[in-house]
Write a protein that binds this DNA or RNA. Sequence first.
RNA 1: UCCUCAGUAGCUCAAUGGCGGAGCAACCGGCUGUUAACCGGUAGGUUGUUGGUUCGAGUCCAACCUGGGGAGCCA
Length: 432
Amino acid sequence: MPEYIQIKDVAKYASQEVLIKGWVYQKRSSGKLHFLQIRDGSADIQAVIFKNDVSEEVFELGDKIALESSVEIVGVVNEHKRSKIGYEISVRDMKLISDGEGYPITPKEHGVAFLMENRHLWLRSPRQRAILRVRNEIIKSIRDFFYEKGFTLVDAPIFTPSACEGTTNLFETTYFDTKAYLSQSGQLYMEAAAMALGKVYCFGPTFRAEKSKTRRHLTEFWMVEPEMAFCDLDGDMALAEEFVEYIVQSVVAKCRDELEVLERDISKLENIKRPFPRISYDEAIEILKKNGHEDIKWGDDFGGDEETVISEQFDRPVMIHHYPAECKAFYMKQDEQNPKTVKCVDMIAPEGYGEIIGGAQREENIDILLEKLKANNLSEEAFEWYLDLRRYGSVEHAGFGLGIERTVSWICGLHHVRETIPFPRLMDRIKP
RNA sequence: UCCUCAGUAGCUCAAUGGCGGAGCAACCGGCUGUUAACCGGUAGGUUGUUGGUUCGAGUCCAACCUGGGGAGCCA
């Protein structure tokens, strides 16, 4: 039996006989020869079956085989100029492992609803595989970045006793004889961890029971949340832009083939270099007034339309800082110069992809924090442990959260975040 | 939750209120270099559900179900 190899390694076996195992994802026939496109997960290659090279049974199998059947192929690796991988395989023997008869997804067009019903199979298509590979690279670059910067990964809990921010709707679940909620953010726990380890981050799933039906929303999504002790808003913004530059440039360097499959304009990604523009909320309001949003007034939060108008003024992500306090969460630090604003920052991705980062310097003054809790109708009791962080050695600290799916969506140039996660959870969809 | 659009063959879509069709997939046949291959043939239907208007409803009306797009909220 020849050596079992992965398709990505065929170049090392030119002119040799090898064994490959994979799935038939496309087939064409021309009388006395069949062309089977084979996928093994590592790469794709064309297998060619000449009638005279194989037994009658194998040639018959090549003719009848259904798409997405799994097979073992023994053949010789030959150069082939028209092939993307540079080689094709001349089949000597082929064995059916399992029949793919009736596979519902064809190489023709399908609607979104049908593909979502068949998400477990849709993952096999080239486009979906490319997206998952980019997502993988993004996640790897995130972990590398924080590791190199001396951050410690600290996992936040998923069951929580109450809302972190007190604003969004949470998924409620039964926790023995009491209620618990699925976490909407690990941030408060990271603030505790930062007082122990200095620079920390968490990376896990988050849950929001908002009835949002837009291309930017999932009910279950992944978020990475760094938190730094002895850090102010400027330090926070500096980290955020270095972080996003690092992620984008890692993908550009490592995922060229995938970006090509996705027909992404790579030059737009190559351009994502520091420094990113920083504008205040006040400046953002001025931009909006000059660009068709004359009605906007100080104190209004920005919706998708507004974000797009602002992002269109720049060719890289833009950071908007110092929002009105009333738009933002209770824990954000009040600005000393203008107490109506807080030391926060949102990073808006270019090309209309919306907010990918929300962050802030945190309020470390316990008296102001107590007032904010009261103003937001949040119970002091539930936040006792959080207040302890201000009672014992409180320091300036800041952090942010980056949404993985929106980042994948932007970098891949997708229309909807549902394709950025293997099994999306949406308001009206929890299957498959 | 609200606004909006849609639901017809396995898939993508046609069909003026008057005999439900096409392309792809499937199946049968042809082709020694195909790249969404091509050529010929066969089969495939409770038109989302319930009710209503009408001589007659895929088509008009109502409610419901399912899904798409968007808003608010957010990452």
